[in-house]
Design a protein around this nucleic acid. Sequence first.
RNA 1: CGGGGCGUGGCGCAGCCUGGCAGCGCGCCUGCUUUGGGAGCAGGAAGUCGGAGGUUCAAAUCCUCUCGCCCCGACCA
Length: 508
Amino acid sequence: MGKDNKAETAITPTRSLDYAEWYQQVVRASDLAENSPVRGCMVIKPWGYALWENIRDVLDDMFKETGVKNAYFPLFIPKRFLEREAEHVEGFAKECAVVTHHRLEEGPDGSLIPAGVLDEPLVVRPTSETIIGDSFSRWVSSYRDLPLLINQWCNVVRWEMRTRIFLRTSEFLWQEGHTAHAIRAEAMDRTLQMLDIYEKLAQDYLAVPVLKGEKSASERFPGAVNTFTLEAMMQDRKALQTGTSHFLGQKFARASEIKYQSAEEKEVYAWTTSWGVSTRLIGAIIMTHADDNGLVLPPMIASSHVVLMPIIRKPADKTTVMDFTHSLARELRGQYYHDRKIAVEIDDREAHGGKGWDWIKKGIPVRVEIGPRDIAQASVFVGRRDRGPREKESIPRDQFIKTIVRMLDEIQKNMFDRALVFREKNTKQIDSQEDFYAFFTPKNQEKPEIHGGFALAHWCGNETCEEKIKTDLSVTIRCILPDAEEETGRCIACGDKSTRRVVFAKAY
RNA sequence: CGGGGCGUGGCGCAGCCUGGCAGCGCGCCUGCUUUGGGAGCAGGAAGUCGGAGGUUCAAAUCCUCUCGCCCCGACCA
């Protein structure tokens, strides 16, 4: 096949042709992860895990700056712990994996059979409020023990009916922060403070613009008093929840007996919070930035920043080209891109032009081709992932080294700006029910095209209206914006008086 | 869990209707030729056709069951 017949895009199908399939192909082509033999679970490959490590490092620093300490709690939670908070049970019971045995014995046909029955079944943590609460109940006895600010990095298991790599897997990696406070307002401040940290992570590091707001009652975390959320718009215009922070009031404190003696010598319950982000963020990066040529990584958390691709025309050139390449790598690696050393890959495979596409698909921010001609004029040939695959330019070597940090910053900014423009273009104020329904109804029912977006519409606050919209259109309230202007209008569902708009969208 | 679609070398697919040697493109390996960019030629490795059972002289193909993936629905942090 001649190169003229090659597909125009590195990923097939394209986003507009089949978004769900495109997503899977990007995950595969970029070498981030793969499905595992275990239903609903994923294997995160090095290129993908590096993203998680970078996200983790950034967040971990930000947490610690606010006084949070890391700890680790068990994977297994006694069933009775989970039973302590009624709403919590209701929310999670259906998706719990339960360990009932502790030993395997060889059966008659040689296969292994679970043998020792546990006295009390153990639940594989779907979240750790209850078991951390148990510890907190012992750690807190005086108001002087508060606030207690704890985080853990771990995996959790939620037995999902429908899974999607990175977006909803049965097992995923996350961090869960848990705090206990003597004063209600302080707990609420902490809840919002952590949401701000997530917002900073999403916008400044992942280049994912987010809306920050509160969940309606029906979308709340099971057992929470208030749930706050970050909502991002993916390229199919659906919303993805990219982080949550919960004000738990005293509900979990009562369930777990987290109480202490106040300065007034009274026995009182603590106020608690919990907050988390997960490997789902990687899904958000993919669906916000990736294009029909594959992944596009924001430099701030990219698995690696630059790939150097030596082009060796004649065996005689090899030493010169490789020396040039290694010295360039050395100088780049000696620099910092914000708090991280610039990470450089050297790809010296003999693959002609083909390897350039491999790196485009993997989403590396900057590709550098180094051939004898470049070396002769002390320059490098540079391609950026925020531009077209063939839009490459020759840059003097010294200038490249001097400006690499600025170039990465530019890419980072372009990615954020592009995503923001996309969200704004697909966010509409909608006032009539007719327009609202039209907005969320695909023209082709058989094979729905990408449609809809975020609708800013009035809601009276009534749950039955929320329910009706959900039943009719699969559209939910993503969040209630705290800083939304007071504005008189009519509820999009029932027409009753409303004082504010909320964000409606289809969601993952 | 309900409805629909799909499982054939690493990836993408044809073959199935009408049973008869398991194929194609990309990728991979070897050699030669190339070399400013998804290289060309030649050779090669790799598949118990998702799994189990059945029908048949013969099953990727027909039948039954089962597992997985995708879409829609239900549900969901």
